[in-house]
Structure formats: C-alpha cells, structure tokens
Amino acid sequence: MGELTGDSKAALIEYLYMLGDDELLLGHRASEWTGIGPILEADIALSSIAQDEMGHAEVLYGLLEALGEGTPDELAFNRDLPHWRNAIFSELPRGDWGFTVVRHYLHDVAEHIRWQALANSSYEPLAQVARKLLVEEKYHLVHSQTWVRKLGNATEESHRRMQAALDRAFPYALGLFEPTELEAVRVEAGIAPAESELQQRWLDDVVPFLQQSGLTVPVEQAATGWRPTVEPVYGGRQGTHTEYMEQLLDAMQFVYRLEPGAKW
C-alpha cells in the first residue's frame, strides 16, 4: 500500500475508532460481572475475556496513537461522547447472563470474521494486530458458543431468556456492520472489506448455529443467503449514542477527570 493519503488516513482512523471502541465497551460491560457471576467458574472465565477485550482496545488505540490521535488512556478516559464510534450494540447494559453471552457470541463471530479479513489488510500495522488478536479471539468464540449452545435449549426458562436476549440483541448486532461514508475509501485502498460482505458472512455463520441451539432468528432465505427481517439499529458509527453510554462514560472517566493531567 502506498503512503496514506488524506482520505485513506481519515478512513483508517475512523475504522480504528469503530473497532477499538466496540472492544473497550464490550470489555467494560463484561467486567461488570466480575465478582457477581452466576457461579464462581463462570465469573472467572468472563473476567478473563473482559481483560482481553480491554487489551484489544488498547492495542487498536495504540495504532491511533501512532497516527497522531493521542495515547490510549487519553482516547479512553478523556474523549467526549460525540467522538465515540462504537455500535450502540456494545454500549447496551449487560442484562442477564443470557443477554451477555448472546451479545458476546454475536460479537465474537463478527470479530473472528473481521480479523481474518483484516489479516490481509493493506495497512500492515493493522494486519499484524489482526493476526495477533485472532489467536486470543479463538477462545472467546469457543467460550460464547459453548454457553449459547448449552443454554439455548436446556430448560424452558433458559430457552425463554436466550430467545428474549437474541430478539433484543439481533437488530443492534446488525449495527456492527453500519456503513459509513469513508467505507468506500477503505475498500478502495484495500484497508478493509465492505461491511455488507462481512455481514453476509456473519449471517451465514450465526443463523445455522443459533437455530441448532434451538433459537429463532429474525431472518429469511434470500438468493444471496440469509437476510434480516428486522431493521438494524444504526447511529453509533456516526457518534449518536444512548443514555446508557452517557452513564457508562460518566463512570469510566470519573476518576481520570477528578484531576486532569494527573498520573493515576
């Protein structure tokens, strides 16, 4: 890939914010279970994943720092709400254990597909990060798949909760693939694949798995493969967020902003 031009650099920066913010928020929501999980063993496993997601966000923000956007701590703890590019999917409250594992599963499949594609990104630093994160992502996927497959149809109550979780999460999950203006520049420069392409691969992966887990997915068969029958929830990629995000940022940035510029 040649030198980053104005457009492709802006397109890359936007993309890194999108991915890094999703990781950080999912890690933050997962860490809200630490100490109060449904059983000690489950508490411990999700806490590890929360740390990994935070670590992944930090690595992605490291790429932004190299592009002149500020240190990872500044980007996480000193950036105002409108500048966040996470999908609203990632900022939703953790809900019950069913919602948490369904959201993690839907995100893990998307991340797995995305990192595989980005392993060949024309922006080499991103390709290296993708290859690294793919290794740790493998366990995340096994973890969430195991929970969804087992809880999906184990008892009447677990099925009811998992179906409710999927019904709520699915439209927001489609928001992970929200197109943005600079997407075409990214695709043209070979930095990243089109979101619609990733979404299709994601649907072809999650729909059969969720159905085998005894859950109904709001999709229909189309020539190009599965197609959603619900409207996606967009906005996060443009900086529109919910009050959940306001409360989350207030908490996350509270101590840092007590003494701006101080070392914590």
């Binding site: 489950a42 411990i44 496993a45 590890s48 195991t146 087992k150």
Partner: peptide, 20 residues
C-alpha cells in the same frame, strides 16, 4: 478441581481458572 456441568464446559472454565 472445579465445578462444571459437563466435560466440555469444564475445559472452557478450567482454562481460565488454572491457566491465566
């Protein structure tokens, strides 16, 4: 040791309790 419902879940949970 650890508590788990079945062997498959035991592997998933044991990895993070004993191999962090």
């Amino acid at each position: 040791a650890l508590h788990a419902p079945d062997p498959e879940m035991a592997i998933v949970l044991a990895k993070e309790q004993y191999l962090r």
